[in-house]
């Protein structure tokens, strides 16, 4: 067997492993659920039917787009603020000492409890949901950035000083060195942001994915509700994969490095 052929075979086997179980599970659901008399558990056929009907219509514009916009805006704000504040806190020991009790508190405060606080403080509206998402996503990013920046190797900093790197070049260097940990925080924050998007819409909204799904459930539109759950699941998965792609690209220098290390040790 030629090398190319065996490689193709291995690739095909990989695809088989990846798709095998999902296909079997979906087929089982399709067959077992077909003609289901249980109204709570509609068949896969009905759910997919509802999926097309519900989400490829103006509901997409009215509910999915606002949700995604709030998610993007809140997450983006958290990224900017978290990296900036984390950088300052990680870089200067005095700031870190001053901020550490407050940080310790916000690190453990469960994010969903700020929803009622913001409801009272800001009121119901797009802004509130945006702040909820941003606030929840902020802490993992901030704390990881601070940790990463503080952990930058001293030799790195001294080398930078010896080469007279100043100002922007130096900041960039530190941020770059801290970036693996910043990404770890950002990945954690993405999950938090999605959860807060859904919860905030379930609790206070007139539009959005979370609201629509709850609304379907209240009006006993079960296939539609299931299709919403499915959409939320797919959304979470797709965003996580997208993040992974961005991370892989941004940290490719780091990957190469670890690969070489593993090889040599």
């Amino acid at each position: 067997m030629t090398a190319r052929r065996s490689r193709a075979l291995a690739g095909a086997r990989g695809v088989g492993y990846a798709l095998g179980l999902p296909v079997v599970l979906l087929a089982l659901w399709w067959v077992a659920g077909d003609g289901s008399a249980n109204i709570f558990l509609p068949s896969l056929r009905e759910i997919l039917d509802a999926f097309g009907r519900v989400w490829f219509s103006d509901v997409f514009v009215h509910d999915v787009v606002p949700s995604l916009w709030r998610l993007a805006a809140g997450y983006g704000a958290a990224l900017l603020a978290g990296v900036a504040a984390g950088y300052v806190i990680g870089r200067w020991a005095v700031v870190r000492a001053l901020a550490s009790p407050a940080l310790a508190y916000f690190r453990v405060l469960p994010a969903p409890v700020i929803i009622p606080v913001l409801l009272v403080a800001v009121g119901i509206g797009d802004t509130t949901k945006l702040i909820v998402i941003a606030f929840g996503a902020l802490w993992p990013i901030l704390l990881n950035t601070a940790d990463g920046v503080r952990g930058v190797d001293e030799v790195t900093l001294e080398t930078a000083a010896a080469y007279r790197l100043t100002g922007w070049a130096r900041h960039r260097l530190v941020l770059r060195a801290a970036s693996p940990q910043i990404f770890a925080g950002a990945r954690q924050a993405l999950g938090v942001a999605i959860i807060l998007m859904v919860v905030s819409e379930m609790l206070m909204s007139t539009d959005g994915l979370g609201f629509t799904v709850i609304q379907f459930q209240r009006t006993f539109a079960f296939p539609e509700m299931w299709s919403g759950v499915l959409l939320l699941g797919v959304l979470g998965f797709v965003l996580a994969k997208l993040f992974e792609l961005v991370e892989r690209y941004a940290l490719r220098w780091h990957r190469g490095l670890t690969g070489r290390q593993e090889g040599s040790s």
Binding site: V155, T159, A169, R176, W253
Partner: peptide, 25 residues
């Protein structure tokens, strides 16, 4: 400028890994 910067960044990352801070790969 970029070459010492890259080397230094790599050194920092290696130090971080040696400490077991963040297994990548």
């Amino acid at each position: 400028q970029s070459s010492p910067a890259a080397t230094a960044a790599a050194a920092a990352a290696a130090a971080g890994l040696a400490g077991g801070a963040l297994p990548m790969g």
